[in-house]
Design a protein around this nucleic acid. Structure first.
Lengths: 126, 126
DNA sequence: CTTGACTCCGTACCATGGTACGGCATCTAT
DNA sequence: ATAGATGCCGTACCATGGTACGGAGTCAAG
């Protein structure tokens, strides 16, 4: 059995973050012993789940839904969420890639031409 | 000469956003005629610059610095900012790509196996 | 049995990038 | 000349994902 501090450091998050997730409904309300919260392995797994899902780009709201699906064995909805997250990621990746490439080009231009107006700033119309 | 509303709609932003950028020091304080702000082509270019730089992933704080560089013809610092932005974009793109790929894999697994525990949720340890 | 570490709680605060509101002034077209 | 659209201003509020604070209670070791 873990105290909030042990749980938090086991998952490399702050104590306040655990309390925050609890308020947001991402973690359940654990039983108390002498006023102190005691967490078990379920909570540990749950918290690790939250961090992994977060790394996959899910928002806390989406993660809360994913957790709910666990109870209902709703593969269909989970797939839907995964698919729409993939689409959003694709869009975002494309955007960033484009931004990156034009920036790269600009930096190269800028290095080639050491005097006169800066191509980076010029290209943005400044 | 443009009023705030014309300027805003010319760059497809809200009027409040222009005022916000002004407060943040991204746009200069325009001359008034009869209490009303009047903007010129410089402001138009500046605002367009802000939006483009934003699309390239610069934060408003970084954009303010880029604008300052314009005055000082500081290519060196502009390149530095561009390079570090590129690095940050690379890291972020890699992260998102990884998230995307594992999600893709999971969704495929999930579609293949319609009963039993959901691979998406299981993979996150839930 | 005291000291120090940890926990409890509510609430306030942080950054980021805006968006909305209300009351008043001004501008423009009819 | 008057109505309706804009503009002005400060201030408050929004979402997101936390982080910090202060005062109290509790727990374990020396």
């Amino acid at each position: 059995m873990l105290t909030i501090g042990k749980l938090a450091s086991a998952c490399d998050v702050g104590v306040e973050t655990v309390r925050f997730y609890q308020r947001k409904g991402l973690l359940g309300i654990p039983p108390r012993e002498g006023g102190v919260r005691h967490y078990g392995n379920e909570d540990l797994r749950r918290l690790r789940f939250i961090r992994k899902a977060q790394a996959a780009g899910f928002s806390l709201v989406e993660i809360r839904e994913l957790i709910g699906l666990d109870a209902s064995y709703d593969h269909h909805r989970a797939r839907e969420l995964a698919r729409s997250r993939i689409e959003a990621l694709d869009v975002r990746i494309q955007e960033l890639q484009q931004a990156r490439d034009s920036l790269e080009q600009l930096a190269a231009d800028c290095e080639a031409e050491d005097s006169g107006p800066c191509p980076i700033l010029a290209s943005f119309g400044l």
